[in-house]
């Protein structure tokens, strides 16, 4: 198997790996919109954003990486929740498109 084939297979496996994260992300959006969230939720959400921003682009999913990075940066900067939710929705859209 060539490197290109290995990376292609790994990219497909990565996409399957992050598939459940769409529902996780939607649950976070719902919690933030309702105000029913904890500091631990925010920490876990940022961890998710950080991981996807670092890895998705390496597997060719640049738009997803950018959307996740925008969320990660917003959370580092302490963006207000309503604005953060907009970033999360953009991330959700990118993730949905990646998984389609």
């Amino acid at each position: 198997m060539t490197l290109e084939e290995k990376i292609s297979a790994l990219s497909e496996e990565y996409r399957d790996h992050i598939r459940p994260e769409l529902e996780v992300l939607r649950a976070y959006i719902s919690r933030l919109q309702s105000g029913d969230y904890t500091p631990e939720d925010l920490r876990a959400l940022q961890q998710l954003a950080h991981m996807q921003s670092g890895s998705a682009g390496s597997f060719g999913y640049e738009q997803l990486a950018e959307a996740a990075k925008a969320t990660d940066v917003a959370m580092i900067q302490g963006l207000a929740i309503p604005d953060l939710v907009q970033r999360l929705k953009a991330w959700e859209t990118a993730l949905n498109a990646t998984l389609a």
């Binding site: 990376i7 790994l10 496996e13 990565y14 790996h17 670092g54 890895s55 390496s58």
Partner: peptide, 16 residues
């Protein structure tokens, strides 16, 4: 790296 896929990607590149 705490993302195992990154570790696997780098490993593949190094081995190649």
């Amino acid at each position: 790296d705490d993302d195992p896929f990154v570790g696997r990607l780098i490993t593949a590149i190094l081995q190649d």
